[in-house]
């Protein structure tokens, strides 16, 4: 789940915003799927409820990004039938998986902050903050510059 978005992520490539929007929406689609899985797979109520709550939050982001694409006369990427899932179901595995989900969303959001469209930049910066905090909630580490890939 922590795989980087495909294609170039350099600021120049994000100029028109549509590619970055599509990548952010793909990340949100995957996040909704992931958290619905976490909610069902978790053996404890806390993780399950947290997973459900975050699935709802990502659905809100998904709707917002999808609408932003439609408003710009673009075609939202389709939801995939399945997304990668962890093989384990224990708490640590699920936590690590959730951190990876949020890091993927953060990376896509960072790309969106490079859009020429300033509304999209604001959206990207906001989504990046949200993903960063959610990753911390799952036990992730805080990087000095969230969203950038580790070499």
């Amino acid at each position: 789940m922590s795989e980087a978005p495909s294609g170039s992520e350099e600021p120049e490539a994000a100029g028109d915003g549509m590619s970055a929007l599509a990548e952010a929406l793909r990340a949100e689609n995957a996040a909704v799927y992931a958290y619905e899985f976490v909610a069902g797979a978790a053996g404890d109520e806390g993780r399950s409820e947290h997973g459900l709550a975050l699935a709802s939050e990502h659905k809100v982001a998904r709707t917002e990004l999808r609408q932003a694409i439609l408003d710009r006369e673009g075609s939202p990427p389709a939801v995939e039938p399945t997304y990668p899932l962890p093989s384990g179901r224990d708490g640590d595995t699920l936590d690590d998986f959730a951190v990876g989900v949020e890091n993927t969303c953060a990376h896509a959001a960072l790309w969106l902050t490079a859009a020429d469209d300033t509304d999209l930049r604001v959206t990207g910066a906001r989504l990046l903050q949200q993903a960063t905090v959610r990753a911390l909630e799952w036990g992730g580490e805080l990087d000095a510059l969230p969203g950038y890939e580790t070499r």
Binding site: P11, A106, A109, L110, W111, T113, A114, R121, G124, A125, L128, Q129, Q130, A131, T132, V133, L136, L142, D143, A144, L145, P146, G147, Y148
Partner: peptide, 13 residues
């Protein structure tokens, strides 16, 4: 813009 956005995310953290 990306750098500023990333700094803001760290501050939120």
């Amino acid at each position: 813009a990306q750098l500023i956005g990333s700094i803001g995310a760290c501050e939120a953290g």
